[in-house]
């Protein structure tokens, strides 16, 4: 395969999440499957939050990127199960979030019970564990607003989900 004609997966691994553009959709864990069937590219994605307004944009961005790379026949499917979890955000994605000043999600507990309250979210600016939640509902559906008591900076935290 020549470098001018990357594979569909290679194309899609460069598509960014529109709300947190430091992450690719692969880092975010939204990109579940890419396959070529009889000249058609079939892509499966899983929504993060049910009401995430970015999903329509992601769908359009996937089609645009593949069309531009020479794949005219594209189908994007949405799979609801298994449900997306912040556990699917890659190590690379976590580092990219932290580097952008967004605290990556804490590990979730298994079992689908009540949402665990993270006891401490380290400040992405100064590293202090001395932080507190300001609002569970932040600028985007998947982030909460936290404040660092040490450096006094507010920051976004990707809610464990």
């Amino acid at each position: 395969m020549s470098p001018e004609h990357p594979t569909p997966r290679a194309v899609l691994e460069k598509v960014l999440d529109p709300e947190m553009p430091v992450l690719t959709i692969a880092d975010l864990g939204v990109l579940r499957d890419v396959r070529e069937v009889d000249g058609r590219v079939e892509v499966t994605i899983t929504p993060t939050y049910s009401g995430c307004p970015a999903m329509d944009v992601i769908r359009a961005d996937i089609e645009t990127a593949l069309h531009a790379a020479g794949y005219p026949d594209v189908v994007v499917r949405t799979a609801l199960a298994p449900a997306w979890t912040t556990e699917w955000i890659t190590e690379h994605g976590r580092r990219a979030l932290a580097a952008a000043g967004i605290a990556p999600p804490q590990p979730t507990t298994q079992g689908g019970g009540p949402v665990p309250i993270a006891l401490s979210v380290p400040c992405p600016q100064c590293g202090s564990p001395d932080t507190r939640p300001q609002s569970q509902f932040g600028p985007t559906a998947c982030t909460a607003l936290w404040v660092c008591t040490s450096c006094r900076e507010p920051f976004e935290y990707v809610k464990a989900f």
Binding site: Y49, S50, A81, A83, V115, Q136, F137
Partner: peptide, 29 residues
């Protein structure tokens, strides 16, 4: 939604599995 996650209807179960985590945030709030 916690109970509906066990539904024999696979689509309803998938929607409920997703939704239960979200509504637990609503309840906390």
């Amino acid at each position: 939604y916690a109970a509906l996650g066990e539904s024999a209807d696979a689509t309803l179960a998938a929607i409920a599995d997703r939704a239960v985590k979200e509504v637990s945030y609503h309840r906390d709030h």
